[in-house]
């Protein structure tokens, strides 16, 4: 198991984004806890197997249609 903080940057003001992240985390089987939420940056603690953290990153890079993710910086928790 691995714990990392995903700092997600972009145009993230859509109210659905946080729920979308939680829902996708549930679907692939990783834990996701929001630490900070802003319109252009959010910070999420993600825990799970390394390959699933990669999968979480890939999904969040695309995100829901009403959000634009510019980049994701992954940091050790």
């Amino acid at each position: 198991m691995l714990s990392e903080v995903f700092v997600i940057e972009g145009v993230l003001s859509a109210p659905t984004f946080e729920g979308w992240v939680r829902s996708h985390a549930d679907r692939i089987g990783v834990a996701a806890r929001f630490r900070e939420s802003g319109a252009d940056s959010v910070s999420v603690l993600v825990e799970g197997p390394p390959a699933l953290l990669d999968a979480m990153e890939m999904a969040c890079l695309l995100g829901p249609i009403d959000v634009w993710v510019e980049r994701i910086v992954r940091e050790a928790a």
Binding site: A51, D54, A55, M58, A59, L61, L62, G63, I65
Partner: peptide
């Protein structure tokens, strides 16, 4: 899909994700 939805893209799908992001942009 331009929203991953039920799909579970992995690191091997990086090119597909970049393509979809570019289409979306």
């Amino acid at each position: 899909p331009l929203d991953p939805g039920k799909e579970i893209p992995t690191r091997a799908d990086m090119t597909s994700i970049a393509y979809r992001r570019w289409l979306k942009r």
